[in-house]
Design a protein around this nucleic acid. Sequence first.
RNA 1: GGAGAGGUGGCUGAGUGGUCGAAAGCAGCGCUUUGCUAAAGCGCCGUGGGUGUAAAAGCCCACCGGGGGUUCGAAUCCCCCCCUCUCCGCCA
Length: 422
Amino acid sequence: MLDPKLIRETPELVRAALAKKHLSVDLDAVLAVDAAWRTLLQEVELLRSTQKAANTAMACLPKGSPEFIAKVQEMKAVSSQVKEKEVQLKDAEEKVRVAMLSLPNLPHGSVPEGRTPEENVTFATQGDIASLSKHAVPHWEIAGFERLFDFARGAKVTGAGFPFYVGDGARIVRALLQFFLDEDVKAGYTEVSPPIFVNAASATATGQLPDKEGQMYETSDPLYAVPTAEVPLTNFFRDEIVEESMLPIYRCAYTPCFRREAGSYGKDVRGLNRLHQFDKVELLKWVHPATSYDELDKLRGDAERLLQKLELPYRVLLMCGGDVGFAQAKKYDLEVWAAGQKRWLEVSSCSNFEAFQARRAQIRFRAKDTGKPELVHTINGSGLAVPRVLAALLENNLQPDGRVRIPAPLVSYFGKEYLSFT
RNA sequence: GGAGAGGUGGCUGAGUGGUCGAAAGCAGCGCUUUGCUAAAGCGCCGUGGGUGUAAAAGCCCACCGGGGGUUCGAAUCCCCCCCUCUCCGCCA
């Protein structure tokens, strides 16, 4: 959510910033419902004010006195007016709420112009792609792949996109998660194991709701299966005021992630590229607004280091205005090179949300100098998503003998130096 | 799942229809006293919104778990929901 005062007082500034995101936003409609709401609010408050004054006067009048009875009669009219107006006010309030929730976050000034993913800026590239085998194959074509990653049985038991991981397949997933969490903890993040279902209020605070319910699995309660640990993690401090001295707060969490992802097709959904359920470790920070862009860079660095340790070539994309996302002010994507598919796979998305989520979630800190609550900035990114890292690992490290070499830092977690499909 | 008790400000905890945004205490902040510390005394000390302003101040409204209702008037009475605790049942 944006600052309502900013929208009212500098609508042109807001309009210009939103244009950069290339989303169709009717700011005038938002301003109109806001103005209507404020008019009604003032009318109701005026009525309530007279009601209150009468109430105070009546308190020192004898109950049965003629003056008292006259007042009651007089106030009955006011009371019915208030009730009528309050219905309208409630309606107006809801309209404002919906309108405000529909506005995307403003992109940061450093976000490049652009409409499509092709216009994202390659910010950095690490590792040597050329040295990887020219004969690498997509991971789903590796002999024995389906033994370790059993999509057929997953589809039978649950549905497409819910594979079984078997033997070394299960073990490599566990090794990666353990490695990621240990490294993240070393980098200063406190490990958390959150609930994997959230309520509507939580999903609204982080920006999944309203409008994006089609991307989440919903239970009959209703609760939502988390699409990322970001959701429960961010909401940890919802409706709370923390001390400024507690900032910045660093947390990491592993959860399975559930995404319905309707509408994807082709090579995007082959093998481990895109699943309805996958494992991911998320990094999350609550920070002082003044430091949030430094903290974003640091978080991205923490995610990058994981890829470096796994010896995976990757690039960092700075997302252009059109690809930043609804709730983000600035976003970097980390993509690993998958030698078999000969393409980049997104394994982490590191974003600064500034106060957008904090305002929805009412997460604030008490400023030391003024003593007043202020909104924190939230920052998050994957550290990292398992299946695509795994896909790149399988494709890049496949040996002529059909085994996959395990990168040195992972060996102690995996328990051996090669993953075997037999 | 069943029965009972309860949800009030950062915390503890009064308040059962009117002048209550809410006593008191603790914590916090400021001042006084003091060689320092401690103690004591005095004062300040919730959040959100509207309006106003260069920014403030000020003024107004709302908020006593959430939502609805009764009433001229609700923290207080009624209904629904959520949560916590105790006991019982079930269970990894």
